[in-house]
Design a protein around this nucleic acid. Structure first.
Length: 770
RNA sequence: GCCGCGGUGGCGGAAUUGGUAGACGCGCAGGACUCAAAAUCCUGUAUGGGCAACCAUGUGAGGGUUCGAUUCCCUCCCGCGGCACCA
């Protein structure tokens, strides 16, 4: 018989709530443990079956820590600004505010049904003015520190979202959100100077405990490279020789003798033209067309190299030789100096180019790096691939940027006491093709007075990207209802840093990098106590559809968590999602797999129902202890799948016999983090009082962990031939005797000479014969 | 191209300071219970042969080290993720 999950899950969820046992205390004797999952984006699609993977895994850890006596903070909130909601609201002709409220209610109901041990009293919502007041305040801190600046620059413009994107949001030239094409547009944008922190973001990775692949990915993204800047004197036709020069960046100054031409990017070419370079018509045309080419097109794999000789000649400072200067779009305008010295002998791209255009390739000897730099009067220079963060969005559903433009005083920060600058509620907020934010049309709101001089002024109408609110939410959980500060210093000092943070790999170079930066900045301003926000970062794999492909709305191959919970129960979903495969890997969903886990839970329930207390059961004492230890260890190493299978093995072994009260209690406590509702139900069933959650994590009896007798393999010439029952500490003579007594062993050594016996106590005995 | 990870039954996956490969679950087959079904329980389930005791083969391919290799080394093939003309 199956147990009634709907009844018992509701029952225990209510009891937990009444007891308030998941509320973290801001201080006290206990050691703190701050456990964090990436807060969800409450889309109108509702909870995705993948969400519980991360949440239950950390729920298991959070619950275990509470048993172990920690003061655990496991909070939850909503990252609710953003495009999908806005687009949906536009389509439905509704207000994003209302849609968001509804979506959050749905998510909340769904998450609550899973029995996660969140501290709901600290719930945060990035779209709540009481929250974004502080997001705005922090932005102004960046502004006041000179790290936020407005500049006109080519940005990635998504044609269908009608929005400017950060570099990180453009994947293969396409919009990361909608997959649509992007183009370059010149636009005034607020930027935040994350590049000022490039070195620290890189160096401080050494001091945090992140999965190695996460560190590697961040390192690559920051892309540090050390080299030198070198000046080349130019001779421009029709101009006085030596009047101009060009600076190149290279990581290989040691190859400078092999430099046979220079290449400047079309962007640099444009600058030259702008200052009056009298170039040929074909050069102008090349610059024009390359600048129009989409990034994607320009950088795609296998793209034929294009370029044009400028007629300008440069002098190689190493050997005084004249070399031609070309313009080519394989050189990027926004990296290094936008110009390079081409060494076809040592660089594949330069060689390609040289071969395409018949430029010389010479093999010159290398000179030591430092010597080369000195000889040509170069300057050592470190460059990073990381770019400054495009912080403006021309959309409605985001935090207004709290700045005011005054003709006299230029950009002026809205004073603290006037924060938050509340997003005005309006009827129309569709994006515009002009690239202007919809807020620009609300003249009542836009027109204001300058905080400095009281004269007429206009509000900034761009909003922040949704990475803003998520860059600091972990700080707000610490003191979610504080209206004097984003959080009190005492509480921040108590809780920071986050001890364990789990989230998706897709955020490694976005949210994870942004929030590290944001926190470091706040640290420098004296607002937070730690330079790094997260002591440890782990990640989970996606839950795929049963055919191994990504779940998607259009394919209709998704799984609805509500249906699973109502039909099979939260405990079954929790335990299955942990069991389905290694936590860091993507794993396909299998309904049969889930049903199998549910069968196992029924088996537990049956076992406990039929349980009759016995005074001793030494038979299984070791098995029980080893299960507890293995499950404990597996939780620490994120091996939830084998933890679940260990429980299955245990129940297979104790089936048909009873265990003592102490034994069954320990089992239920350790089961608790995985299937908390059922564990409590069983706890009550065996006549125990209170909640499983109030029990200490069981201690293991080390003596019971050791088996006095094990089955050990016996090999002949490395091939398994028999197994003997033996003490794991038996001496070689005993082991040898037992092994040689085996019929199967005798058969294989008959008539042969024993050359050697390898005996590893408790592991193997190998008889080598010839 | 570069960086990282991986390749194990029909399927998801276990096992690595080198030590009986295939735990656990799914699926499948057979049986018990039942008038029957569901549920549950029991048995079997890498492959080939004997079709039972057993023998041989077997962790992407090929070499190597070792008493012993899924695990370490070399060469190669395939898949996944990230970066991608960053000089």
């Amino acid at each position: 018989m199956a147990y009634n999950h709907q009844e018992i899950e509701k029952k225990w969820q209510d009891r937990w709530e009444q007891a308030g046992i998941f509320h973290a205390k801001d201080g006290g004797e206990k050691q703190k443990f701050y456990c964090l999952i990436e807060f969800p984006y409450p889309s109108n699609a509702g909870l995705h079956i993948g969400h519980p993977r991360s949440y239950t895994a950390l729920d298991v850890i959070a619950r275990k820590r509470r048993h172990q006596g920690y003061n655990v903070l496991y909070p939850i909130g909503w990252d609710a600004f953003g495009l999908p909601t806005e687009n949906y609201a536009i389509k439905m002709r509704r207000k994003p505010q209302d849609v968001t409220t509804e979506n959050i209610a749905t998510f909340k109901r769904q998450l609550r049904s899973l029995g996660l041990s969140f501290d709901w009293s600290r719930e945060v919502n990035t779209t709540d003015p009481n929250y974004y007041k502080w997001t705005q305040w922090m932005f102004l801190e960046f502004f006041k520190a000179g790290l936020a600046y407005k500049t006109s620059q080519p940005i990635n413009w998504c044609l269908s979202c009608k929005i400017g994107l950060a570099n990180e949001e453009v994947v293969n030239g396409k919009c990361e959100r909608c997959g649509g094409p992007t183009e370059k547009r010149d636009k005034e944008q607020w930027m935040i100077a994350i590049t000022k922190y490039a070195e620290r973001l890189l160096a401080d990775l050494d001091g945090v405990h992140y999965l190695e692949k996460i560190k590697t990915q961040q390192r690559n993204w920051i892309g540090k490279s050390e080299g030198a800047e070198i000046d080349f004197v130019l001779n421009v036709p029709g101009q006085e020789p030596g009047k101009h020069n060009v600076t190149v960046f290279t990581t290989r100054p040691d190859t400078i003798f092999g430099a046979t031409f220079l290449v400047v990017s079309p962007e640099v070419g444009k600058k030259w033209l702008d200052v009056g370079w009298n170039a040929s018509e074909s050069v102008r045309e090349y610059v024009e067309t390359s600048l129009k080419r989409e990034e994607m097109d320009r950088t795609a794999e296998g793209t034929e190299k294009t370029g044009i000789d400028t007629g300008v000649v440069a002098i190689n400072p190493a050997n005084g030789k004249e070399i031609p200067v070309w313009i080519a779009d394989y050189v990027l305008g926004n990296y290094g100096t936008g110009s390079i010295m081409a060494v076809p002998q040592h660089d594949e791209r330069d060689r390609d180019f040289a071969q395409t255009f018949g430029l010389p390739i010479v093999d010159e000897p290398l000179v030591p790096f430092d010597e080369a730099v000195e000889k040509v009067a170069g300057r050592k220079k470190t460059n990073y691939k990381l770019r400054d963060w495009v912080f403006s969005r021309q959309r409605y559903w985001g935090e207004p940027i709290p700045l005011v433009w005054c003709e006299k005083h230029q950009w002026v920060a809205v004073p603290d006491e006037q924060l938050p600058v509340v997003l005005p509620e309006v009827e129309r907020y569709e994006p515009t093709d002009t690239g202007e934010s919809p807020l620009a049309a609300i003249t009542d709101w836009v027109n204001t007075t300058c905080p400095t001089c009281g004269g007429p002024a206009k509000r900034e109408t761009d909003t922040m990207p949704n990475w803003a609110g998520s860059s600091w939410y972990f700080l707000r959980y610490i003191d979610a209802h504080n209206d004097q500060a984003f959080a009190s210093q005492d509480k921040l000092t108590y809780w920071m840093p986050v001890d364990l943070y789990n989230g998706g790999n897709e955020h490694t170079t976005l949210h994870l990098l942004y929030s590290r930066f944001w926190n470091k900045f706040l640290f420098d301003q004296g607002h937070v106590p730690t330079s790094e926000p997260y002591a440890r970062r782990h990640s989970h794999g996606l839950v795929m559809a049963s055919d191994g492909t990504k779940m998607s709305k259009s394919k209709g191959n998704g799984v609805n968590p509500d249906e699973i919970v109502s039909e099979y129960g939260a405990d079954a979903l929790r335990m299955y999602i942990l069991f389905m495969g290694p936590f860091e890997e993507p794993v396909p969903w299998s309904l049969n797999g889930l049903i199998g886990v549910r069968r196992f839970l029924d088996k537990i329930e049956r076992y406990v129902s039929e349980w009759i207390e016995v005074q001793t059961n030494n038979e299984v004492a070791g098995t029980v202890e080893r299960t507890l230890k293995k499950v404990s260890d597996d939780i620490e190493s994120f091996k939830f799948n084998t933890a679940v299978s260990t429980f299955m093995t245990l129940f297979n072994e104790i089936a048909g016999q009873s265990v003592t009260r102490e034994q069954i209690k320990k089992i239920l406590v350790v089961l608790g983090p995985f299937a908390p509702h059922l564990a409590n139900e069983c706890w009550e069933k065996i006549g125990e009082k209170g909640l499983v959650e109030e029990q200490p994590w069981p201690e293991f009896d080390a003596r019971l962990l050791v088996q006095d007798e094990i089955e050990m393999g016996v090999q002949v010439n490395g091939k398994a031939r028999a197994a003997i029952r033996i003490s794991p500490t038996a001496d070689e003579v005993t082991a040898k005797q037992l092994a040689l007594a085996e019929e199967k062993v005798q058969k294989h050594i008959e008539g042969k000479e024993i050359v050697k016996i390898v005996y590893v106590p408790g592991r193997i005995l190998n008889i080598v014969v010839k």
